[in-house]
Amino acid sequence: MIYLFQILNGIGLGMLYFLLAAGLSIIFGLLQFVNFAHGAFYLLGAYLTYDLVERGVSFWIALPVATLIVAIVAGAIEALLLHRIYKLPHTFHILVTVGIALVFQELAIIIWGPIGGSVPTPDGLGGVVMLGNFVYPQYRLFTIAVTAVLAGGLWWLLEGTRVGAIVRAGSESASNMALLGYNTMRINTAVFAFGAGLAGLAGALAAPIRGVEPFMGAEALSVAFVVVVIGGMGSYTGALAAGLMIGIIQSLMTTIWPQGAQLFIYIAMAAVIAIRPRGLLGRV
């Protein structure tokens, strides 16, 4: 029964990982751009939520506001800086985005202090649900529900709408899209802002569960990488499967061997890579 409980926990965690990785994957798919600042957007989303809630703003307003601000900030960074370096080798993508991540991390320490903090469980979801003999926090069920709806919505957006078709066509051939008269620079900015917004949302949703601290970005980034590597980059269902797998493994290990819970994320990754280098559902 405790395992069932942890699996439910893992699904909640895994869905947050999925949001992170989906944002990273969408950005990479369209822009061929390695975004090492992705963890910084997660950090920003979490800290903005923390800040707004501290100021007495309701969590339900803080959540969308924080997500939106992250998307706007990311869009501005893309439009002002990143589009200049797309043509450079990956080394410089990494250098610039590592630089941006450092700036965000240090700004977080300057503004909010080095200690970090916790975000109270939002109003109306402070209670628990009884599952057999176990109590389960309502907020965690809420995150599972929200991310599940988002995952469905995202899939529909990418596969079933004109906007999604444009994004997918852009990742096949950006130059053809430009020839067809699409303003690819604006599409790039929008997609980057959207992908970063997903990371910001993941951070905002995670804040009441895991709190905030200045170095949360680096950890989120490496987990997102693991999910993408396991799932297969560019595979939406792969990211979902890998996110859930990692979340569940981590939660189960928390019961079995608490110190090794984080470690097993990476062991799982090494095992998948050894058996299937392209990832679970990767095409290339």
Binding site: L81, L95, V96, G99, I100, L102, V103
Partner: peptide, 8 residues
């Protein structure tokens, strides 16, 4: 923070 700007 300055290092970040140097990298860019």
């Amino acid at each position: 923070l300055l290092l970040g700007l140097v990298l860019v």
